[in-house]
Design a protein around this nucleic acid. Structure first.
Lengths: 140, 140
DNA sequence: CGGTATCCTATTAGATACTG
DNA sequence: CAGTATCTAATAGGATACCG
């Protein structure tokens, strides 16, 4: 079994105060866990409470077992999610945000909700962009 | 030449108020443009002003021509970035955020800066997570 | 239930070469 | 300068099977 994200490069930007814009800075990796396709949705789901594995799978529409598992591990490793396993039979595992995770999720949700709230503008921009392109392509 | 993101699924969740958690909702696509690896960094760079193509390439460390071009097109199509081309020779093209893009970038930067500011905690969590795993793996 | 291991495909990203 | 085209390599992602 391989580590989750070991190949994340050297930690040689401590002095640069963790600048995401630099390659090989660990903050870039964490940012990707947070904003990545499944990371963002998982944090979003957990922002509303504590959930079990399969509850999360249903909430995060379209995620596979594999990706959810991988995502949860990455977030747990980064200290954003806490995993609470009861050694019962059948097993019961609950996932919830840590205080740090909650703080991150809050900022993430602010972004998500803002984007959702302006989707009409985005769709309008897309329509006009595509309209221009098609007229340009049309005249060969 | 193919459209940038046409296969983004039907727009059948207008009634669900653009729920990112649903598959095939356009807000998920836009969210991915915004939070994606290069999208986030590009918006971050443009948050500090207007830049030319190669200036951006230098600011967003590690991005290839291809990915920057692709990213900028997606963001332009979503109405977040404005492209200003002067038909001079040599050509000069400036990119800057639209008002909507600025609003998005602000929320995004809040998230990025927060994560950067807490990287010490993240790194600590990683260290302790890895320590536990290695002791577990060690006892075979 | 709550996962992991494996295999395989699709998408993404990078290098390189070239154009207006 | 500001890209596009093309090819290849790396990675993400999904399906399936199986374990505790």
């Amino acid at each position: 079994m391989k580590p989750i994200a070991q190949a994340e490069g050297a930690v040689d930007c401590q002095d640069l105060a963790f600048d995401v814009f630099s390659r090989h800075c660990p903050s870039r990796g964490t940012l990707e866990h947070v904003t990545g396709r499944w990371g963002a949705l998982t944090l979003g789901a957990l922002h509303e409470g504590s959930f079990r594995f399969n509850e999360l799978r249903r909430r995060v529409d379209g995620v596979s077992e594999k990706m959810l598992s991988q995502t949860l591990h990455a977030l747990e490793r980064d200290g954003l999610v806490h995993r609470e396993a009861q050694p019962t039979n059948p097993p019961r595992v609950d996932y919830e945000l840590t205080p740090l995770g909650r703080a991150v999720a809050e900022r993430l949700m602010a972004l998500i909700h803002f984007v959702e709230g302006r989707m009409d503008e985005v769709l309008e921009a897309r329509a006009s962009y595509d309209a221009k392109r098609s007229t340009l392509d049309g005249r060969a």
